[in-house]
Design a protein around this nucleic acid. Sequence first.
DNA 1: TATAATAGGATTGTCGACAAAAATCTTTCT
DNA 2: AGAAAGATTTTTGTCGACAATCCTATTATA
Lengths: 235, 235
Amino acid sequence: MSNLDLSPVVDQTIRKQILTRLMPLIVSGKLEPGQRLREQDLARHLGVSRAPLREAIRDLVDVGLLVSVPYKGVHVRLTGRKDLEEIYSLRVALEQLAFRECWNKRDLAALADLQARNQALSDTIQQGSDGTRAIEQELHLHSWCFELSGHSLLLQAWDRMKPNLHLYFSLHQHAHGRQGPLRQAHDAYLAFASGDDLSAMLSHLVDHMRQGLETTQKLFDEDEAALEIKKVPGS
Amino acid sequence: MSNLDLSPVVDQTIRKQILTRLMPLIVSGKLEPGQRLREQDLARHLGVSRAPLREAIRDLVDVGLLVSVPYKGVHVRLTGRKDLEEIYSLRVALEQLAFRECWNKRDLAALADLQARNQALSDTIQQGSDGTRAIEQELHLHSWCFELSGHSLLLQAWDRMKPNLHLYFSLHQHAHGRQGPLRQAHDAYLAFASGDDLSAMLSHLVDHMRQGLETTQKLFDEDEAALEIKKVPGS
DNA sequence: TATAATAGGATTGTCGACAAAAATCTTTCT
DNA sequence: AGAAAGATTTTTGTCGACAATCCTATTATA
């Protein structure tokens, strides 16, 4: 049921086509942080005019994947320990709110859905081939509470945060061996989310996130200079 | 020090000029919720082309003040009890996080700044003339913790929320007499924010917000139909 | 050599026009 | 009268070109 994600025949608008081509390049780390993007070159290279490209770029700037420096150009966001901490602290707050809001809406169908998402994640990890897919499914697992909450503003905030998490996960995956998320890491998450103790779930979230944060932070313990100090290349 | 907000000589880009003209019209309620905006008419009326207008509109859609219905047009966001509850629940979560993050950064200068903001609010309320100004200063008071936190993501989320709060405050102000925020309402807020007990502050926030929420909700207890049911007018 | 003026390049902002898609209105036929 | 087909309008998306702004590198001058 969640496996038939056949890619749509074709995106209608050029702006969305550009988005679906650029987004994976960035969140997967193929365009490395700090990489500068020239509007004209990109437009020529993609065979489109600047108008839809500019709009797509603005979309990416809005979610924070790209940084626009006025009159200098746009570049892929620089990563660093501080950004990571900000993302995680905000993420804890948002996901805690999501669980508060969805707690009483959990019915059998919702719980089955949650378990299915976890199963899909486990399977992908087990077979261990596609790292990007594992990341997507971890994010999809965590999307559960936001979607169930029915809180549109909250879901919107989460959707803005997701691509940034994806980027950090990818960077971590590239740096260290391609261990995706740990298989066991989400068992407790699932148990608490299915259980009856909301405040236990809320405090588990803090631990769960801290663990994820510390794991990802190792990225910066080693090659801090390589990623954080790097300035926007001149050309 | 905070009183010399002399409006800049002139906004450079047309897009920002449009923003600074449209934003007040919306958040003040002069463009009533559901009001439809026609791109061409607006462009002609403002004497600009569609390009910068479209970008300005996108900005307003991003913060949630405008709603864009594909192939039907954009209109001022419809207000309702559910939206209000979403805004407030998210606001509590964000402001709690802000206080957690800024708690240890409060020094004498910061506390003086907080008090100054509260004083400015009180003065404006006392003289009772300019309702919009009182709203702006209440928002400015609450911005304190976000700015002090140094948490850029959090500040960004707050900046997106602010205009929506402004709109609801304005609607409430128009509906009932022009009592702005109550003068006493923020005394406790200030005391807790300056105090030593973080968890006391956090729980006060819940109460403070609930009070604000309930006050504003009265807006919908009376003329629910008038505001919520109203559909986008045909012309 | 150091500083200031200047020329060049890059990027953003803006414009007017056109094409495509969807919705709405009008007409026509049964 | 009701429904289907077509025409009109509105909105959106797209394009190419130009102007304005800012940054940068070069050159000229003291």
